[in-house]
């Protein structure tokens, strides 16, 4: 809490904030120590696993079980080392062009915020589950909610999958989740109920891993944004092998394209540029 909260947006607020950042989150004290969310990092976190630290950093809460579940999700669900997958292919293209590892992985990671897969799907799925759960608790019918979602948005995040009908990751993830006493909460139940309903409709949508992961995390008490932040690096495990593989192959050899692979459907190629004219 500080005095700036009483100042409305404008130059006055910026003036108040110049060289003046107040934070509860953390800081480094050079040569001495570092703090995260009110705890000394060396003292409180030295024995944490990295994802346990990440759960604390993102949520401010401690949960070994949530961290372990996320770790398993990253291994089972989002780290396929296949350079044909769009985000992985960027990492691999970086390898074949001999860019740096960090640039390749970060480009692939940024691209993972995609619509047909990846982070938009994940965030959309947990948001949908939270919204539906709230409506159901107020007495809405699941059928009506799904119908309205499809009517309004023509998509139900977490259901259906590009390139495939079923999702092979669902069973192994659920098996692991149950092995650590997860997977039986209300959001998981809801996610599969939606899947059962949709698979019987004319859309034939099957539940995909986004809905399952989102449901497991919602049952762990994660908010939509907490889940989104904790998912944002989930694909890098599959990217490193793709980059390393490509950099170990002769340069430029990852899926090269000859000129005939361009299917041109544009204007006839007989134009001449006339400077300054609207041709």
């Amino acid at each position: 809490m500080n005095e700036r909260q009483n100042i409305p947006p404008g130059p006055g607020l910026l003036n108040q904030c110049e060289d003046n950042w107040h934070t509860e989150m953390g800081a480094i004290f050079f040569g001495e120590r570092a703090v995260l969310r009110g705890k000394d990092i060396f003292e409180a976190y030295s024995n944490h696993r990295w994802l346990e630290f990440m759960v604390s950093a993102v949520t401010g809460r401690e949960s070994k079980k949530t961290a372990r579940l996320i770790e398993a999700m990253w291994v089972i669900c989002s780290s396929y080392p296949d350079p044909r997958l769009w985000n992985n292919r960027i990492a691999a293209l970086g390898g074949t062009t001999r860019t740096t590892g960090a640039l390749a992985i970060n480009a692939g990671s940024a691209v993972s915020e995609a619509t047909i897969y990846g982070l938009k799907t994940s965030k959309g799925a947990i948001d949908l589950l939270h919204r539906f759960k709230k409506e159901l608790d107020f007495g809405a019918s699941l059928e009506e909610l799904i119908h309205n979602e499809l009517k309004q948005y023509r998509v139900v995040w977490g259901y259906g999958r590009p390139l495939a009908s079923g999702d092979e990751r669902v069973a192994p993830l659920m098996k692991f989740a149950k092995s650590i006493d997860c997977g039986t909460g209300p959001f998981v139940k809801l996610a599969f109920e939606i899947g059962d309903y949709l698979s019987d409709t004319r859309y034939k949508y099957q539940i995909n891993i986004s809905a399952v992961v989102a449901a497991l995390m919602a049952d762990e008490g994660l908010s939509t944004n907490e889940f989104y932040y904790l998912s944002s690096l989930s694909f890098v495990g599959g990217m490193f092998p793709c980059y390393i593989d490509a950099i170990n192959h002769p340069e430029g050899t990852l899926f090269p394209l000859s000129t005939g692979r361009i299917n041109y459907i544009g204007a006839p190629t007989d134009k001449n540029w006339l400077p300054g004219d609207n041709q």
Binding site: D19, W21, H22, R33, V35, F42
Partner: peptide, 18 residues
């Protein structure tokens, strides 16, 4: 670097074990 620009409002202070 804003060396003096940051105020940590939740600081446990130096820990004895260090």
């Amino acid at each position: 670097f804003f060396a003096n620009g940051l105020t940590l409002t939740d600081d446990p202070g130096p820990v004895s074990c260090h």
